[in-house]
Nucleic acid binder design. Structure first.
Lengths: 140, 140
DNA sequence: ACATGTTGTTGCACAGTACAACGTCGGGCG
DNA sequence: CGCCCGACGTTGTACTGTGCAACAACATGT
């Protein structure tokens, strides 16, 4: 197996292992926000409001799943939905203040944890790693 | 926010997004092997046989979860368990021939898919990306 | 105006997971 | 040696996340 192939194998394996651990770590990091709900809130926030269909396609989730998650988040008062004035079928999702606060806290927790594990990396390596991941993710 | 911090943010976000999509993609790639069972088989294979406790700690799973997954894999004839001669409590898990075959096929599917998305990366970048991921994963 | 497609909701079923209680075995300490 | 504690795995129970299918409401093009 060539060097390139074995590198690709490593990438595959490491990313898979990461995925397998992610749920557990997310629940450790911010117990009141699951990996899914965190991701959804985060996307809504970054996009400045978005529709359920966007969330579904971005995370490759069924729309029914998103519908329920959104319902749960709304019940918790973390987001609001407004019917899209331009399209009465759709609705626009936005985090509430409470949602934003929770999101910020969770992000802070995550950042602490991530920062800690990069202590022995120098800046250039961190930057390059981020670039590679972004490049990889962009094609997802 | 410093460049380093924003890089760490990117890493965080990309890894999380990846994790959210992983299950779906795994089921696309090899429908008869879930992300979990694939990972477990793969670990057993790479370690040349291992105990359930190893799997649990490696993937941060509860031992009951592992026990059930292993049970399922055994029922499918993909692995065998032998009681550890050195410690009658434990058991050593090994993929069967059928398990190895399935694993090889799945790995091939994955490799194709991964290879495809790295077509426009040059060798050095792929190698460095792999190194970074391995380094990251080692601290997990 | 009607057929077709898009957006979200609901009913149903199932996989994956955790936690707790338990049986079994191994190892250290009196 | 005999006991107790700890490690390994299994089973019962409950919950979350997920997908698929059927549906309702709205939009769009002909």
């Amino acid at each position: 197996m060539s060097g390139r192939e074995s590198s690709i194998d490593t990438i595959q394996r490491e990313l898979t292992a990461f995925a397998r651990r992610a749920r557990h770590k997310a629940s450790q990091l911010h117990p009141d926000l699951s990996l899914v709900t965190y991701s959804i809130l985060d996307l809504m926030n970054e996009r400045g409001g978005c529709r359920a269909a966007d969330v579904a396609s971005y995370f490759m989730l069924d729309k029914s799943t998103v519908s329920r998650q959104v319902g749960a988040l709304e019940k918790l008062g973390l987001l609001v939905r407004e019917t899209d004035p331009d399209d009465q079928r759709g609705q626009i999702l936005r985090p509430t203040e409470a949602g934003l606060t929770l999101l910020r806290e969770a992000a802070e927790q995550r950042r602490l944890s991530f920062t800690e594990r990069f202590t022995d990396w120098d800046d250039e390596d961190v930057a390059r790693f981020a670039d590679y991941l972004a490049r990889y993710g962009a094609a997802d």
